[in-house]
Write a protein that binds this DNA or RNA. Structure first.
Length: 463
RNA sequence: GGCGCGUUCGUCUAGCGGCCUAGGACGACAGGUUCUCAACCUGUAAAUCAUGGGUUCAAAUCCCAUACGCGUCACCA
């Protein structure tokens, strides 16, 4: 049985696009194999919690179509799915490790640890816990009996730790390079390392697909699995998304919350499609495909080892492709939903065929089409020296009886000829007069939609 | 600094020892179309496959070293 999970921390405003990328792979692998995809909230760091972060994260993931079979929202056979509600389980497991002599109590104060590390660094040694408490266990248990605060540390074995990663291959790290990791904090909360191993095992997770940032701590997790006598899951460590300067994707250099892209009017299908292309490629070289198709062909073995740069330009191109694939009706629905109810629906729907090839995200609609709903408040060209031209246009237009794009076009062409103006120049003046902008949807069609009275009014005001 | 991972056009990538004088896509540029902008079509530039050594009849592909980048070294995840 394939069971995958993502284990995000609610330490941000929303779900990070990197988390979406790994969620996508986990989701696909579970679905491809008829298994389950689980969302577990890792809220063991109370100081970094962001209020409302969990709700927004879960909601955005849903919106993206990555719905979990088991989660804090829908529950499941291994609930609770929020680590803060599983404290007793971690404590019990940490203590079991003490009994097995694979972990020990430690009562060192933060100050002592701090001084120790400073000293080690000054001596250019690797900062590592010096096992002071391990070497004074009788004394330590005495103090704990008297109410001293304690943590539980893993006794890191002095041997090679090996495991296989689907993406990275065979990995060997020596235990002497690893610290005696704290498993249980003095506030009774587990650290990530304990909680992730205990939960992944208890929740029967078969494949751990997660970001590369976890690769260096995986040996610790392997030690834990072995200490508990549990079977290892399959590990696959994926590359991290990066900023253009190759640093880890960060807020400072890019929008990182998935909802920020959705808010621009990027479709969730396009975001998913784009993210799928980060560090993976379709076996047939396809660039555009839906989630279902991705599920069908995805395999963790095909994940790339190098870290891709997240490029919003290509995302926007992709979204443009999705926009153009939509029917006029469906795009109209999406745009209406995006811009809200303050715009007359009949006008909106008439403008859709004019903009479908011209926008890359829904956010682009209003800047391009605002003139349909209100007259220009400024003009991209100074039209005051062109009153004679406007006069001609006004008279020609007022004689049009059948207010249709081709009629308007014919009359305007004739007017340009009469004025002995080049078409380009003539239509540019007209365009700016009607829309205020040098860039607009096709003019004749736009004027048809605007209607004769409105167009005449917009010319007249310039006379 | 220790440990780990990585390195193919600006970017996403194909490539799995001969099909590679390295293919596709985005972007850029040029042209076509055109009343603008797009869309669409055609074309161009763009990668000494990080560098240096090996292995082999043959290497982008296998091995080693170096450089560079990234990650990680917390009672954060």
């Amino acid at each position: 049985m394939v069971r995958t999970r993502i284990a995000p921390s609610p330490t941000g405003e929303d779900v990070h696009v990197g988390t979406v990328a790994t969620a996508l792979m986990n989701y696909a692998w579970a679905k491809k194999n008829g298994g389950q995809f689980i969302i577990r909230i890792e809220d063991t760091d109370r100081s970094r919690m962001v209020a409302g972060g969990e709700e927004r994260m879960l909601q955005t993931l849903n919106q993206l179509g990555l719905t979990a079979d088991e989660s804090p929202l829908v529950g499941g056979p291994y609930q609770p799915y929020r680590q803060s509600q599983r404290l007793a389980i971690y404590k019990q497991h940490a203590e079991a490790l003490i009994k097995k002599k694979q972990a020990y109590y430690c009562i060192c104060s933060p100050q002592r640890l701090d001084e120790m590390r400073k000293k080690q660094q000054a001596e250019k040694r690797i900062p590592k816990y010096d096992r002071h408490c391990f070497n004074h266990q009788a004394e330590v248990s005495n103090q704990i009996k008297n109410g001293a605060q304690y943590v539980i540390r893993l006794l890191m074995p002095d041997r090679e730790i090996v495991f296989d990663d689907v993406v990275r291959g065979h990995i060997v790290v020596h235990g002497s390079n690893l610290d005696d990791q704290v498993l249980l904090k003095s506030d009774g909360f587990p650290t990530y390392h304990l909680a992730v191993v205990v939960d992944d095992h208890l929740m029967q997770i078969s494949h751990v697909i997660r970001g590369e940032e976890w690769l260096s701590s995986t040996p610790k997790h392997v030690v834990l699995y072995e200490a508990f006598g549990w079977e290892l899951p399959v590990f696959a460590h994926t590359s991290l998304l990066r900023n253009p300067d190759k640093s880890k994707l960060s807020k400072r250099k890019n929008p990182v919350w998935a909802s920020q892209y959705l808010a621009q009017g990027i479709f969730s299908e396009a975001l998913i499609n784009y993210l799928a292309l980060m560090g993976w490629s379709h076996p047939k070289g396809k660039e555009i495909f839906d989630l279902q198709e991705y599920v069908r062909v995805f395999d963790p073995k095909d994940i790339q080892t190098s870290a891709p740069v997240f490029d919003p330009v290509k995302l926007e191109w992709l979204n443009g492709m999705y926009i153009r694939e939509l029917s006029i009706k469906d795009l109209g629905l999406r745009i209406t939903q995006y811009i809200g109810d303050n715009y007359p629906k009949d006008i909106v729907s008439q403008t859709i065929p004019l903009v479908r090839e011209r926008i890359k995200k829904l956010e682009d609609y209003l800047p391009l089409c605002g003139f349909f709903y209100k007259p220009p408040d400024k003009y991209a060209l100074d039209l005051s020296p062109k009153k004679a031209v406007m006069e001609k246009i006004y008279h020609a237009l007022s004689k049009v009886t059948d207010w249709k794009a081709d009629q308007i076009g014919a009359v305007m062409l004739q007017t340009a000829q009469d004025l002995q103006m080049r078409n380009g120049e003539f239509f540019m003046l007209l365009r700016v007069a009607i829309t205020g902008s040098k860039i607009s949807p096709p003019l004749n069609e736009s004027m048809e939609i605007l209607g004769k009275p409105t167009c005449l009014k917009r010319i007249k005001i310039l006379l």
